[in-house]
Nucleic acid binder design. Structure first.
Lengths: 326, 326
DNA sequence: CATAAAAATAACAACGTTGTTATTAATGAA
DNA sequence: TTCATTAATAACAACGTTGTTATTTTTATG
């Protein structure tokens, strides 16, 4: 049997309501009795009963993260960053890898104060009756009734293209998965195309479809790329994994980076620094993204304003060793 | 405000205790009233309050999985399999990626009925006071006070070696991370060595240290392997990622698989089938492992016997296309 | 038709908290 | 001292369930 506030009350010779107040550091109880009660509680190894508290207060201070796809390293990295970001808040985080609907049910049972949802594609939108939620990475979808945090893909591509242009590159190719069903991927290519046009390079626009998001998809795309009569001088890789494959393939072909070819990758995660070569990359840094998501959901819970904004975060370009002058 | 059993009672014209019984399908309430109540509950959109239930029943029917390392694909695969395996039980699963101690606290607050712990290395063992738990993959560690489920690494290596031997191979090399601090890796190499001796191949024992668990660690190890005057005819890869690198490297060197070289990988996950070549592999199939872990924790909870057994699961050899006669 | 037995339902006390209201103790002013 | 005022503590009703006990209704039996 666990020790309850009534046990503490008996031990300390006070009423249990006083114990409750003391444990919540209420100003209604005298300093010395507060200290005594706290000491007794400590001695008896008291652990508050969340269920009881929850029953009366209707708050759990727990946030549920729904993450149906445990596969992509970028998301894994984001998840652990979010978990870390919650440490400096009164909230803690639990995770479900079930599909969105099932996970929502589980979390509703627990009466989590809020939910964060990673939706993969633009499937059926969540029915967010009652419980505050926020989504990541689906901004291109039709109107939703909850806030969405996303990276500004267009701005990212603009920055990448401009950066390469300033280094003297004109022939800049985008290598990524060009899937019209996946709005995230679609936004990236379109962002690239727009950026090229903005920079006056519209006649150099070229994108290669990797037809997948994996390492080998990037690896094999290079083959195709180098068969061209006039290969580009710079590549924008569509994601961490793809860029990893591109990098490997280029080096195998004896192409010196960044001397013969510049490479910049989408996604800004710490792992970029420990790749085969420290990779220059563009994207919203995961820690920043995590911070933003955590603040977003907490604010949404506490200010209880259900306006469904979309927040697009500005990307950061992190210079490392894979880009150089043309 | 959510609808409670009292609301239902009022609506249905019965007492709320009858509603409770009806909702729990108790034989104490007449069939027709039961049906009526159920219908009213449905109509009113009743959702039971877990906190209240929990407060009186002291059960949550939730199991917490502690998974501090969201990185290795093998574990990610195992996690999603475990989650799926819980679907056919009355329990559901939530996840924490915090470190073991913090996660334990979170789960204690929630009063989960049990915990599954993935410990990375042999750090400080968990203090499992009170709450039933089960661990995966740390069987080589000193005595613990909770059950442990693990693969039988020795048996796996024995099977792999025997399989290759039957195909006519004698010169079989093990390529993996040989880290004396990581008991799991240690067990694998030692299992290999023992298996070779058992099979009468003690003078062919050779292992190459990849000095890491990543793709490239396997890739680069092949270089070293092929420089030998007498290269082996078969390789046992230490893990999914390592074997992926080995496979790629061999093909690049123009070595035909399985004609010139046989390759078998440790870890038995579905992804093995969709690698560059369908990979023959040895290990406990993840779905089986998941099933075993789920049953293990449930049994441990329900039979409430705290004997700390160690269960070593038998591996399965899955034949695909990377092994052939010598 | 009365009455015991069985079946169905209702009443109510838990469970461990919080927050509101009621009571008691300490303090200060006339 | 005596009484208002304030500070400190105690009492107690929630919260939404479950499970036990008490009451009512139905059914079976002589």
């Amino acid at each position: 049997m666990n020790v309850t506030i009534k046990d503490i009350a008996k031990e300390a010779g006070v009423s249990y309501s006083t114990v409750s107040k003391a444990l919540n550091d209420s100003p209604l109880v005298k300093e010395v009795t507060k200290r005594k009660i706290l000491r007794v509680a400590e001695d008896m190894g008291y652990e508050p009963n969340l269920a009881a508290k929850q029953l009366v207060r209707k708050k759990t201070e727990v946030i549920g993260l729904i993450w149906p796809t445990i596969e992509r390293i970028v998301l894994a990295s984001l998840v652990s960053n979010i978990s870390k970001a919650f440490e400096s808040t009164p909230y803690s985080m639990i995770l479900s890898v079930e599909d969105v609907d099932t996970a929502t049910d589980t979390f509703k049972k627990f009466q989590v104060d809020g939910m964060i949802v990673f939706e993969e594609s633009n499937d059926d939108p969540v029915d967010n009756d009652s419980i505050p939620m926020i989504a990541y990475g689906v901004s291109s979808t039709d109107h939703r009734s909850y806030p969405i945090i996303d990276a500004n893909h267009e701005a990212a591509m603009q920055q990448a293209v401009e950066y390469l242009y300033r280094l003297g590159h004109k022939s800049i190719v985008y290598v990524g998965h060009i899937d019209t069903n996946d709005s995230l991927q679609k936004e990236k290519v379109e962002g690239y195309q727009k950026a090229m046009t903005n920079t006056g390079l519209s006649n150099h626009v070229q994108s290669i479809d990797t037809e997948g998001l994996g390492w080998f998809d990037g690896y094999y795309a290079v083959e195709q790329l180098l068969q061209q009569e006039n290969p580009p001088t710079a590549i924008i890789g569509g994601s961490y994994d793809i860029s990893g494959g591109i990098l490997r393939a280029l080096r195998e072909k004896g192409i010196s980076i960044p001397h013969d070819m510049s490479l910049i990758s989408y996604d800004n995660i710490p792992q970029m620094a420990t790749m085969e070569m420290p990779m220059t990359c563009i994207g919203v840094p995961v820690d920043e993204l995590a911070e933003e998501i955590v603040h977003g959901i907490i604010e949404h819970i506490e200010s209880n304003q259900p306006d469904a904004f979309i927040k697009k975060l500005s990307p950061t370009l992190t210079e490392r060793q894979t880009c150089g002058p043309a």
